[in-house]
Amino acid sequence: MPPAVITRRKLAALLAAVPILGACVGTRQGSDYYAGPVSDHFDGSRFFNPEGEAPRSFTQLLRWQLTETRTPWPESFPSPFPQDAPPARVPGRAPRISFVGHSTFLIQGAGLNILTDPVWSDRASPFSFTGPKRVNAPGIDFAALPRIDVVLVSHGHYDHMDVDTLRRLWERDRPRILAPLGNDVILRGHHPAMVVETMDWHDQRDLGAGVTATLEAVHHWSARGIFDRNHALWGGFVLKGIGDGIFFAGDTGFDQGRPFRRVAQRHPGLGLALLPIGAYEPRWFMQAQHMNPDDAVQGFQLLGARQAIGYHWGTFNLTNEGVDSPPADLATALAAKGVDPARFVAARPGLVWTDAAA
């Protein structure tokens, strides 16, 4: 193999990938974010995935960033849908789901407005000058958002926990912010007045109007910098009381199907699964942290949900696959497994989905 050449572009990609993908080796003792009892997923210093794969090493990150070739993305990849203008409230239990982009959904139902992993910033990066830049506009203009009651934050990576957006939401609406253990310290470090309710796996919160949110175990990890890997927890959320139940997976690897079997056992008969289908190449590096579309279809089948919406693709260029590879690979996986493609759609910003069956 020829020696790696560190071009300016590769260096920028490397700087951006370090905190976004959580692939650095931390050296501090103890957690900067959480102090609590040892458990089956916390060793007193760091969180971990029971039975799962460990994160990739810094050496492996360098190998990926400096020796692999990415499929080029266009500077703009506009959605075929117009920006949504959601109603102020949606009464009744039938959900209205609007896709903003990447991992951000507006979930409306039972009179509540709930956002997942809200990101309205132009870059999913700790840097203002480099890092993955949005290639399409958010599916809802921030000014058009109705008053937000609840924000669900799945973990601390920059493409999911956007502190600037969370600050704007807090200052405007004072929503309840639910996040896994340790992420409150990160957010209060940027906005000391922000109130964040932390949850461990399987904790449940009453959101009012007969709606609950439960944090469920998925296979991932967290980091904001080079010394804090896994000092905060990660997870997905199950919402009950809207439709027949909604599972938002956050970020997860397939992990031999374990996350999906657990959720299906604890929450049978879900109506909707929101599942990531992007940021999956190269597989030797990404398999433990991000599903590819074939993994996502298997996860959907294990969940036993009626419908799935695929996200985490087509907005921020994080990995090697092309911008439009995920929906093509999803179509192939659905056909191979005999699943009606109408039951699992790849979302684009501005997509609105309603469940007439709920």
Rank of each mutant, 00 (worst) to 15 (best):
P2G: 02
V5A: 12
T7F: 00
K10S: 10
K10I: 00
L11T: 04
L21D: 03
A23E: 01
A23F: 06
V25A: 12
R28S: 06
G36V: 08
G36W: 08
D40Y: 00
F47D: 00
F47L: 04
G52M: 00
P55T: 02
R63D: 12
Q65D: 03
W73R: 12
F81K: 14
P87S: 13
G92R: 10
I97T: 12
A110H: 00
W120P: 06
W120H: 12
P132C: 13
L145P: 09
I148F: 13
D149I: 07
V151E: 06
S154L: 02
H160D: 14
D162W: 08
D164R: 15
W170G: 01
I177R: 01
P180S: 05
V185A: 15
G189N: 13
M194A: 07
T198K: 09
D200V: 03
H202S: 14
A217V: 00
A217I: 02
F227P: 06
R229H: 06
A232I: 04
L233F: 12
G250D: 01
R262W: 14
H267L: 08
L272N: 01
A273V: 09
L275C: 01
I277D: 06
G278F: 00
A279H: 14
F285Y: 09
M286H: 07
V297L: 12
G299L: 09
R306F: 00
H312V: 04
G314L: 01
T319V: 11
N320I: 00
D324M: 02
D324Y: 03
P326V: 03
A335W: 04
K337D: 12
P341D: 00
P341W: 05
R343F: 07
R343Y: 06
L351Q: 07
T354Y: 06
A356R: 15
A358R: 00
